[in-house]
């Protein structure tokens, strides 16, 4: 394998970007790779980045499939808020002392509450899927409806207030460690493995690509494009709900107004950074995960460099423009033409 074939691989540029971001971090913070064991848990910059990127990684995986079918889902932030609110409202919880023993009591059993949160996420996603595949609306507009109404619904559930959760076992999802690694990372890994198996070991991945590349042709070849798109949006809703539960558990509360704010943009950006074309078709789940990590490492660098965190948005904006321009065929043609012209003169 020569250098050229490596650099043409789809994961090459995302990996280079991630490597550069990590090196920037390492340059300014020599302790970047050090990992300490504190209270049965691993602590360190790398673990921190993985842990904090977990919600965006989850949503971005669902978003990857949606974008691969030529769609977009801008309602995931609202879905995060709704599912977080459901989980918080159902669990609530209080600390009670019975016979001198402290016990944590939840309003409804925790497993039921989490199932409800995921179910509502699925419903939100299927609603989007129905509007896109059933009614035939443009994806941006179909999901815009839930994006506008969703935060209202989330606030309706929380009564317009920030609902605090007092049920300690629930905090495990966002703060707990399992075998020394934050639990959220396992969730990401589990979803990623299941999805990768589904996409690469079954025809599902091929179907998704076919629908994105040419919906008409895929329909003629016997793929039920409508059902596929419907369920892909449903899956995206579920990933948003899992992220919502992790976030609610991490901050021990649900805030209908601010939970998951602008998260749809981070997820879309992660997908674009990972090399999936926003025009649909070919997609890369691993690329998306790398994209989400690039974003988080970037934020981490900004914080650890002591640059005011306000710059973060400006940097992200520049990243958006640069990524778009790299993907732009028009720009490539322009540069290529210029080069051939120069060569022609020489």
């Amino acid at each position: 394998m020569n250098l050229q074939s490596i650099s043409k691989g789809r994961l090459f540029w995302p990996l280079v970007a991630l490597f550069l971001m990590v090196m920037v971090n390492f340059w300014f913070n020599p302790d970047f790779f050090s990992i300490k064991v504190v209270n049965n848990g691993l602590y360190g910059s790398v673990i921190d980045i993985l842990n904090r990127a977990a919600p965006v990684m989850l949503i971005a995986m669902g978003m990857t499939l949606v974008i691969a079918t030529r769609g977009i889902d801008i309602s995931v932030g609202a879905t995060v808020a709704i599912s977080g609110a459901i989980a918080a409202a159902l669990i609530g919880g209080s600390l009670e002392i019975k016979d001198g023993v402290q016990t944590y009591v939840s309003n409804t059993p925790m497993s039921l509450a989490i199932l409800a949160a995921l179910g509502v996420g699925l419903l939100c996603g299927l609603w989007n899927g129905f509007l896109v595949a059933g009614v035939g609306m443009q994806p941006i507009i179909a999901t815009l409806i839930l994006m506008v109404a969703g935060r209202g619904i989330a606030q309706l559930i929380t009564g317009g207030q920030i609902v605090t959760i007092y049920y300690e076992p629930f905090f495990f999802f966002g703060n707990g460690f399992f075998l020394g690694v934050p639990f959220a990372i396992y969730l990401v890994a589990a979803v990623a493995v299941v999805l990768l198996l589904l996409v690469h070991r079954t025809a599902l991945g091929l179907f998704v690509q076919a629908v994105g590349l040419n919906p008409t042709a895929s329909r003629f070849s016997g793929i039920s494009a409508r059902a596929l798109i419907f369920w892909v949006y449903g899956f995206c809703g579920v990933t948003a709900a899992v992220a919502g539960v992790i976030i609610a558990s991490n901050v021990k509360s649900a805030d209908g107004n601010n939970a998951g704010l602008m998260m749809e943009l981070d997820a879309i950006l992660a997908v674009a950074l990972g090399g999936t074309s926003l025009d649909g078709g070919r997609f890369s789940l691993i690329g998306t995960l790398i994209g989400a990590l690039i974003l988080q490492t970037l934020s981490y660098a900004i914080y650890s460099l002591g640059v005011p965190p306000e710059i973060n948005l400006v940097v992200k904006a520049i990243v958006v423009f640069v990524v778009c321009l790299i993907q732009s065929e028009a720009l490539r043609n322009m540069l290529f033409q210029r080069r051939t012209r120069v060569e022609g003169q020489a």
Binding site: A272, L313, V314, A317, I318, V320, C324, S328, A330
Partner: peptide, 20 residues
């Protein structure tokens, strides 16, 4: 000029203006 999607470009504009 660069034939980019309006959605994603104006998204970048949104980040940029709020960031500023």
């Amino acid at each position: 000029v660069f034939k980019l999607q309006a959605f994603i470009v104006t998204l970048g504009g949104m980040f940029l203006a709020r960031g500023l």
